[in-house]
Simulated scan of single mutants.
Amino acid sequence: MTAPWPYPRWIAHRGAGKLAPENTLAAFRLGAAHGYRMFECDAKLSADGVPFLMHDATLDRTTSGRGTGGDLAWRELAQLDAGSWHSRAHAGEPLPTLDNLARYCIANGYFLNIEIKPTPGTEEHTGRVVGEHAARLWQGQAVPPLFSSFKPDALAGARATAPHIPRALLIDALWDGCLDVARELGCVAIVCNHALWDAALVAQVQGWGLRTLSYTVNDEWAAQRLIDLGTDGIITDRVDLFSPAA
Rank of each mutant, 00 (worst) to 15 (best):
K44A: 10
A20P: 08
L19W: 08
F39T: 12
Y36H: 07
P163Y: 02
L185Q: 05
M54Q: 13
S214C: 07
F111Q: 09
R225Y: 13
A160D: 10
A223H: 07
T126H: 07
F150L: 15
L101D: 09
A158I: 01
R29F: 01
I116M: 09
D237L: 06
G131S: 06
I165G: 11
A142I: 06
L53T: 13
N193R: 08
Q79K: 15
R37V: 11
D240C: 12
L80Q: 07
S64L: 06
A162G: 07
D228F: 05
T161V: 05
L30C: 09
P51E: 14
G177T: 03
A20E: 06
D42F: 01
R9C: 04
T126L: 02
L185K: 02
L226K: 01
A73H: 15
L112D: 13
R238T: 13
Q224T: 03
D176E: 13
G31Q: 12
V191L: 04
A78H: 15
A195D: 13
A89Y: 10
C178P: 02
L210S: 01
V188M: 05
A154H: 06
L80C: 07
G109W: 01
E124T: 13
L185C: 08
H194C: 03
D48Y: 11
H34I: 11
I106Q: 01
L229T: 01
D81N: 14
Y215C: 04
P163G: 11
F111W: 02
K44G: 12
T2H: 03
G131A: 03
K18E: 15
A107I: 01
T236S: 15
E184T: 09
I106V: 14
T161Y: 09
D172I: 04
Q204D: 00
F150K: 08
L101T: 04
G186A: 11
W197Y: 10
A182N: 04
E132I: 05
A16N: 03
L59F: 04
A82Y: 08
L169G: 10
H164M: 08
T63V: 06
P118C: 07
G67K: 00
D153I: 03
G207H: 12
W221M: 04
L229I: 05
Q204S: 08
A89P: 06
L185N: 06
K44F: 01
P144Y: 00
A223D: 10
L170R: 05
G207Y: 12
G186Q: 02
A189R: 00
L95Y: 07
E76T: 14
T212K: 00
L77V: 08
G233V: 03
I227K: 15
G209H: 02
N108S: 14
